[in-house]
């Protein structure tokens, strides 16, 4: 059975001020559904709330209204075990490729951390790390390097590879190619398409680059003044 990630009536309001509170509505009554093997494109100008919506769907931020349903269950009401499963199956890839990896950890340590999280025996870590680099089209000499010592595209591939170790079903891609140059962008998008075809991943692709969204998405929405509208 195909799983789904659903947002129902999502709203997000930010409050500021100690005595005289001012409110800023970021999202209003947003509903969407992500399905496996499908890409939903989300566009909008800077500050329109695209990333906030992505974080809410990934369970990294709480909405002020509405619910996020994973497999039909509200993620705020999941038991610890169910939430761990949700956490692994819904992943987020961030915009800043270099910033997505801890600058104090080598690529090897960054990958080993995830393997440790998955409780994979230590003896297999080296082999699994090399497999991951091969899958992502990266050289094994990268293992010794630090995020500041490799290119943005390589960092983004490592970040994506770490996420894929968890075997997610849905990925929130927050401007995954905006910080990359054109040729690397094309490689990255093609890699994402291949992964979707091979693993049946569901994507929410957040971007302000219409060409990228049109190339990737099956359906496109625009976020404007906190509301989501289908792109004509």
């Amino acid at each position: 059975m195909l799983a789904s990630l659903k947002a129902v009536g999502i709203g997000k309001v930010y409050e500021s001020g100690l005595i005289f509170k001012s409110q800023k509505t970021i999202l209003q009554n947003i509903s969407l559904e992500l399905e496996e093997g499908q890409t939903l494109g989300l566009m909008g100008v800077s500050g329109s709330g695209k990333t906030t919506l992505g974080k809410i769907l990934a369970g990294l931020e709480r909405p002020t209204a509405g619910r996020v349903l994973f497999g039909g269950k509200d993620i705020q009401r999941l038991h610890k075990k169910e939430f761990t499963l949700f956490r692994r199956q819904v992943q987020m890839v961030f915009q800043d490729p270099e910033g997505s990896l801890n600058p104090r950890k080598s690529i090897e340590e960054a990958i080993h951390d995830v393997l440790g999280l998955l409780k994979i025996p230590k003896g297999e870590w080296r082999e699994r790390s090399l497999d991951l680099l091969e899958t992502m089209g990266l050289s094994d000499e990268l293992l010794c390097r630090y995020p500041g010592q490799i290119s943005g595209g390589q960092n983004q591939r490592v970040a994506l590879g770490r996420v894929l170790l968890l075997n997610p079903r849905f990925m929130i891609l927050d401007e995954p190619t905006s910080a990359l140059d054109l040729s690397v962008q094309a490689q990255m998008l093609s890699l994402l398409k291949d992964l979707q075809r091979d693993r049946g991943l569901g994507y929410l692709l957040i971007s302000h680059q219409s060409d990228v969204v049109k190339y990737m998405a099956h359906e496109i929405f625009i976020l404007e003044e906190g509301r989501m509208k289908p792109m004509s």
Binding site: A58, L60, R87, M92, F94, S100, N102, A159, R162, V163
Partner: peptide, 9 residues
């Protein structure tokens, strides 16, 4: 981002 990525993982 790397702390958010760690939380997301």
């Amino acid at each position: 981002s790397f702390v958010e990525a760690a939380r997301s993982l």
